[in-house]
C-alpha cells in the first residue's frame, strides 16, 4: 500500500482528497488502480500525469517501482521550451 498525494485540481476529481492510498507496486498499476477507484481521474491519466517518487519526477516509465514508504506525488505533465 502506498500513499499518493494529488495536486489541487486532481484532488477535486478524487472526492476532494489530497492524499489517497493505493495498493500498487509500480506506476502502471498505480494508474490502473487510481482509475478504478476514482473514475474522474481517468481522463487526466490519459492526458498524461507525471509521478514524483522520493523527489525524482518520472513522466513515462510505467515499470518504475514504488518502494514501500516512498513519498509519491502526482504532478501535471509539463511542456518544455
Amino acid at each position: 500500500m502506498v500513499e499518493v498525494t494529488l495536486w489541487g485540481a486532481l484532488a477535486a476529481t478524487a472526492g476532494g482528497q489530497s492524499k489517497v492510498e493505493v495498493e500498487a507496486k509500480d506506476i502502471r498499476e498505480l494508474f490502473r488502480k487510481l482509475a478504478e477507484q476514482y473514475p474522474g481521474l481517468e481522463p487526466w491519466i490519459d492526458r498524461g500525469i507525471a509521478v514524483a517518487i522520493d523527489g525524482t519526477i518520472y513522466r513515462d516509465t510505467w515499470s518504475k517501482e514504488l518502494p514501500q514508504g516512498a513519498e509519491i506525488f502526482l504532478l501535471p505533465r509539463l511542456a518544455g521550451g
Binding site: W7, G55, E71, F73
Partner: peptide, 9 residues
Amino acid sequence: QSSYGPVYG
C-alpha cells in the same frame, strides 16, 4: 518539501 509538492533530492 518543494512548493510544488515533492521533497528535493
